[in-house]
């Protein structure tokens, strides 16, 4: 049973991150995700200090606010003359450091230790359960389902708006789309997704689950819908595959999930039809043969 819940949690992480990751990649915001995955620590700690509880809802709220603050501060630094990558670097390291400091100062005895936040521990997930409507499931699964639902609802409601504002923001503005709202709403979703995936894979590897499956799907897709489906599938596959590899090698589950995602990316990068590196090389060889023959 425990194995089952670990697999469910991992798959949900893969699916939720895979979905959000698609628009992170298309909006060229992969590094913002990296930043948010670290600054949610600040939000979670602040939520704990204020409420003195580790309730998932407060954590989610704190993380959501931290994510929006991160996105906003990056925007402020950037529009005042700092480069985008430097802005991200300054904002997230500072907020993350403050988060770490706050933990050691005010929350030293709580379950919120830094290592846990960075690496997560999916193996512990099945023991921390929550019962709702007579249904007892691990807390992490509840959180992930909730966030997945929000993500899906947001995309159903704003699919064409988020698509257009991603592809052509100037045109989107000219027809009156609420660009600022869409940007910060999306940043909030990224924060939610990060917190939900946090317990299982940790702040560092959640970035891998957000970005790697979506990048793999990008290489294989000519439409966003296909990219979304592939990204979620690859995310799930990475999680399940990663679990069994980790079991086989007796290694870190989260580490193996991210490694599997990286492995799948590498395979696709090398062997994908038409544009894969190896295919290109073979075409080149074929062409050379042709020219020599003629």
């Amino acid at each position: 049973m425990n194995e089952f819940w670990v697999l469910v949690t991992g798959s949900l992480v893969g699916i939720t991150c895979g979905l959000t990751g698609v628009f992170l990649i298309l909006r060229k915001m992969a590094m913002i995700a990296d930043a948010i995955s670290h600054t949610v620590l600040f939000g979670i700690v602040m939520a704990f200090i204020i409420t003195q509880s580790l309730n998932g809802i407060w954590m989610m709220l704190g993380a959501g606010i931290a994510g929006v603050i991160t996105a906003y501060l990056v925007q402020v630094l950037q529009s005042n003359g700092l480069q985008e990558d430097a802005s991200i670097g300054v904002v997230f390291t500072t907020l993350f450091a403050v988060g770490v400091l706050l933990i050691t100062l005010f929350a030293g005895n709580v379950h919120l230790d830094v290592e846990h936040v960075l690496m997560g521990e999916i193996a512990f997930v099945p023991w921390n359960t929550w019962t709702f409507m007579n249904l007892t499931m691990p807390k992490a699964v509840w959180m992930l389902l909730f966030v997945l639902l929000i993500n899906i609802l947001f995309l159903l409601g704003f699919y064409k708006e988020i698509k257009l504002s991603t592809f052509d923001p100037i045109f989107a503005m000219s027809i009156g789309l609420p660009l600022v709202f869409l940007h910060y709403a999306f940043m909030t979703l990224v924060s939610f997704t990060t917190v939900a995936a946090f317990d299982s894979v940790g702040a560092v590897l959640v970035v891998a689950m957000l970005i790697v499956p979506a990048s793999t799907a990008y290489l294989l897709s000519k439409s966003i819908k296909r990219m979304i489906i592939l990204s979620m599938l690859i995310g799930m596959l990475s999680a399940i595959g990663g679990y069994y590899f980790a079991k086989f090698l007796d290694a870190s589950i989260a580490g193996m999930m991210a490694t599997t995602a990286g492995g799948i990316f590498l395979l696709v990068f090398l062997f994908r039809p038409y544009e894969g590196l190896l295919m290109k090389k073979r075409k080149l060889v074929n062409m050379n043969n042709l020219t020599i023959k003629s």
Binding site: I170, K222, S223
Partner: peptide, 26 residues
Amino acid sequence: YVPQRNAVDWDFPTNALDVVLMGRYG
């Protein structure tokens, strides 16, 4: 409105009809 062509990323995964359809979004 027709913005400058180089204002967008043409590697975006979508097809020609889909882009034209964006003109209907308003």
